[in-house]
Nucleic acid binder design. Sequence first.
DNA 1: CGGGATCCCGAGCGATACTG
DNA 2: CAGTATCGCTCGGGATCCCG
Lengths: 120, 120
Amino acid sequence: MTIKSDQDNSPCKDNCPCMDCCPLGSALSQIGGKWKIPILCALFQDGTTRFNELKRKIRGITNTMLVSSLKELEEEGLIFREQFMEMPVRVEYSVTDNCRDLMPILKQLAYWGAQVHTIK
Amino acid sequence: MTIKSDQDNSPCKDNCPCMDCCPLGSALSQIGGKWKIPILCALFQDGTTRFNELKRKIRGITNTMLVSSLKELEEEGLIFREQFMEMPVRVEYSVTDNCRDLMPILKQLAYWGAQVHTIK
DNA sequence: CGGGATCCCGAGCGATACTG
DNA sequence: CAGTATCGCTCGGGATCCCG
């Protein structure tokens, strides 16, 4: 672990500016892109959700982007995918514990974003 | 203010999935792009820094991207730009209080990103 | 129902040269 | 020194149709 102690208030590693294998960069890339945050929020708020249900809730997302975003989120360990071998097929998505750990931090970010230019 | 109380653990507003004017989305867009985090980290760690000094520290950044990123960060109120009318011109950049508020949150994100897949 | 396969466009970014 | 001005390209994302 190359991250400094809590006394250091820099968000990055010793060898900042955070290029290459920066944990902050990797974290941001995991939730980056146009649709991942909406997907995570939908799953987090409403719990386990099916594919087309998600598509309906997230207004404007295309089939392609929903599929690829879900796949990436699953590979990153943020969401869980369960497929039921019925006819027709049923697939359910839900957030992982790892994702639940992330949410309070994102909430702080949202607070920060909402307060911009209001404190002067 | 449409953000819920602390009892609510969702990072977004009432009408999630966070489309349109989501404060989380706006926060993420402010620090988005390829170079803003490295710039902020450099300024935060080393304090007030001149243009070409920044360019040297942030390996690989082009003139164009450094200029445009600095401009956006200044418009968003994250950094402060001071121009000294000397010859040759001297311009110094530094982080604002608003940016300093952001840093602890980014640090938490970095911790989270560093711990991914190590807790199992 | 839950995706895949294609095609396409434009923002984001890089490279280079120039300027007050 | 601190930027502008162009040009060109990659690639994230949109649209549409197809499939088991």
